[in-house]
């Protein structure tokens, strides 16, 4: 399928999702759906770096929370700014941090990069915790408007629609990369970096592109969060559950194509939304951890691996 026809199908699916959710007639459906979509973006973003180039990022929470906190800063300084612009700013901030971390550590072996991302998450959390302008350790309240600014409906429907659009963009970008020059370069890096370099692939530059893209999308996924939760503190913004989910979803769905993270996010995201309501949130996180370990051992190619040779 050509990229544009794929995007058209994605948009159709997105509209069907939106009106399908509206038919439920309960705003809880939008609240739950928002979280699942947020994970579609996060998992897809993670996979651009992790699945395509093979560099494991444990710092999802940092990129995500940076996006959220950049919205907090904008909310306090430029409250009139429309949310889509805040999302763009969040993406730029997180993308730049991704670029910086990558520049410092991507020359090293992949495991050092992974450890560095974990470290970066804690550094960022410490900085935010000590920054009183954004609430520090006590957290910050953000007032959510009642009405959607662009159509007749609840503000949560607006947030849902934005996250839906972000999902469409992220998935379309991921898929476009797969069969592009960039995608082949990423795959070469994943398989053998030395051979990639000897084949003319500028490995460092490509890895930086992947890190910046991946971090940028994570930041965009986090940017609307303050309006969604209305109360944000460092320990919830930087929660490890974001990192675990974002790694588990692509690995369970399958890392080799765009479909894997989407599948993983929809399945695991929905499961957790259901489990959090019916059982407990800690237990639902335990399920994710166990599934992650079981899948990496038993099904290294993920769910989509079951359907391909």
């Amino acid at each position: 399928m050509r990229n544009w026809s794929f995007v058209s199908v994605l948009v159709l699916v997105a509209f069907a999702t939106f009106f399908g959710t509206k038919m439920v007639g309960n705003s809880y459906a939008f609240f739950a759906g928002y979280v699942v979509l947020q994970y579609v973006v996060l998992a897809t973003a993670w996979n651009i770096l992790g699945g395509y180039t093979g560099y494991v990022n444990f710092g999802t929470a940092a990129f995500f929370a940076l996006g959220a906190y950049s919205t907090v800063v904008l909310h306090k300084t430029l409250p009139e700014l429309p949310l889509p612009l805040m999302i763009a700013v969040g993406g730029v901030v997180s993308g730049a941090v991704g670029l910086g971390t990558g520049y410092l550590t991507l020359r090293l072996r992949g495991t050092f990069f992974s450890i560095a991302t974990l470290a970066m998450a804690v550094v960022m959390q410490t900085l935010i915790t000590n920054w009183s302008f954004v609430g520090g350790a006590r957290g910050v309240y953000v007032i959510r408007p009642d009405e959607s600014p662009i159509f007749d409906g609840d503000y949560i429907e607006y947030l849902f629609l934005l996250m839906l659009a972000l999902s469409v963009i992220a998935v379309a970008v991921a898929r476009a990369i797969e069969h592009s020059r960039l995608g082949y370069g990423f795959a070469a890096i994943r398989d053998d970096e030395l051979a990639a370099e000897a084949s003319g692939v500028p490995t460092l530059r490509l890895k930086l592109i992947a890190t910046a893209l991946s971090g940028g999308f994570m930041g965009m996924a986090g940017a609307p969060l303050p309006y969604y939760v209305t109360y944000l503190d460092p320990s919830s913004g930087f929660s490890l559950s974001y990192a675990v989910n974002t790694i588990a979803m692509p690995l369970i769905g399958g890392t080799s194509s765009w479909l894997g993270p989407v599948l993983g996010a929809v399945l695991l995201g929905t499961l957790q939304q259901a489990a959090t309501v019916t059982i407990s949130s800690a237990l639902s996180l335990l399920i994710v951890g166990v599934l992650l370990v079981v899948f990496v051992i038993v099904a290294p190619k993920g769910i989509i691996g079951w359907f391909r040779r």
């Binding site: 795959a187 070469a188 994943r190 398989d191 053998d192 030395l194 051979a195 990639a196 080799s256």
Partner: peptide, 8 residues
Amino acid sequence: LPRPFASL
């Protein structure tokens, strides 16, 4: 030692 891109 040949170093092919194993997943391609």
